[in-house]
Amino acid sequence: MSIALEIISTEKLLLSRDVDMAVIPGTEGDIGVLPGHAKLITGLRGGLVDIYENGSISARYFVSSGFAEITESRCAVLADAIVPQEELDEATAKAALAEAKAAYDAVDIHDGYAYREAVDKLISAQAMVDSVTPHQV
């Protein structure tokens, strides 16, 4: 049994293939998606999408934020920015984090929308830094 995983950025379809399991970073926590998963729509926080094949991780992609639609046979990850984990670069990640921090410090806390956007960016940037050298599973 396998599940059709699609990783889609706004500009192109990055990956579409059958995998054994995918672990995706939902806003409420990581979600392991196996075939037959209940239908689910979730927001994504920044983090790694892990692709499991034959009992081990075969590929890891960093996604900044976005959405995922999961059905019994399919898992579609719609992400804003997608980078294969091995192509992540510590300097870029740190720069993004510094930028997100500055934006967060500058944001008007009473402007709900802007505030939430800044928080999302900060979480995503932090996740990017953490993903450069992720914990081995």
């Binding site: 706004t10 939902g26 806003t27 409420e28 209940a38 239908k39 689910l40 729509i41 979730t42 927001g43 976005g66 959405f67 639609e69």
Partner: peptide, 26 residues
């Protein structure tokens, strides 16, 4: 719809709608 939604419909739509607008413009 018969989807489960995380965190919940309203919150997710708040994030989805601006994104959807950008997609339409794109």
């Amino acid at each position: 719809h018969n989807y489960e939604v995380e965190p919940d419909d309203g919150t997710l739509l708040d994030r989805l709608l601006p994104r959807n607008l950008a997609v339409q413009v794109y």
